[in-house]
């Protein structure tokens, strides 16, 4: 198996590893580094469960090779501090099994940073790449909307 040496910052710490060329970023984060908050769903970029931040932007962890993240800054749900969003998801039943939740939170936070007062349609649009098979989405949109209001958006 072809391997390469990579160096990147993950959740604030510099990490150096020898990785197979074919290893994708989310598997690297989960299996090599133990950051299991990012989930592996479809492995084809459809479901959004593997969402992580690379250089501050949401990406699909299954559609990026670990070697492509060489030199990048990677952040996962583990170090995210948006307690209000987390609490709103809890309070408004915006999750059941929780599989999609890390990706939902990262996408929702990105939306609220770019657009503090999104409409419900805009929330749906922005989260359209994150699948939830439990809630039917209504409660998720409620939670993001509630946080937008509470933050003064």
């Amino acid at each position: 198996m072809k391997t390469l040496r990579i160096s990147l910052t993950v959740n604030g710490e510099v990490v150096e590893r020898e990785v197979p060329a074919r290893l994708n970023l989310v598997d690297f984060l989960r299996h090599d580094l133990g950051f299991t908050g990012s989930h592996v769903g479809c492995e084809q970029g459809a479901c959004g469960a593997c969402t992580v931040l690379v250089d501050g932007e949401t990406v699909r962890g299954c559609l990026l090779l670990a070697v492509q993240a060489d030199g990048c800054k990677v952040e996962t749900i583990e170090i995210m501090e948006f307690e209000d969003l987390r609490a709103a998801f809890h309070r408004l039943n915006a999750l059941q099994c929780g599989f999609c939740t890390p990706g939902m939170l990262l996408s929702a936070q990105e939306l609220l940073q770019a657009k503090p007062k999104p409409s419900r349609a805009e929330i749906r649009e922005y989260l359209s790449g994150n699948f939830c098979r439990c809630t039917g989405y209504q409660a998720i949109v409620d939670a993001v909307e509630a946080v937008a209001r509470a933050r003064g958006g």
Binding site: T58, V59, R60, L63, S107, S128, N130
Partner: peptide, 9 residues
């Protein structure tokens, strides 16, 4: 085109 996370790459 797809979704924001895909449009970032």
């Amino acid at each position: 085109i797809a979704h924001p996370a895909v449009r970032h790459r």
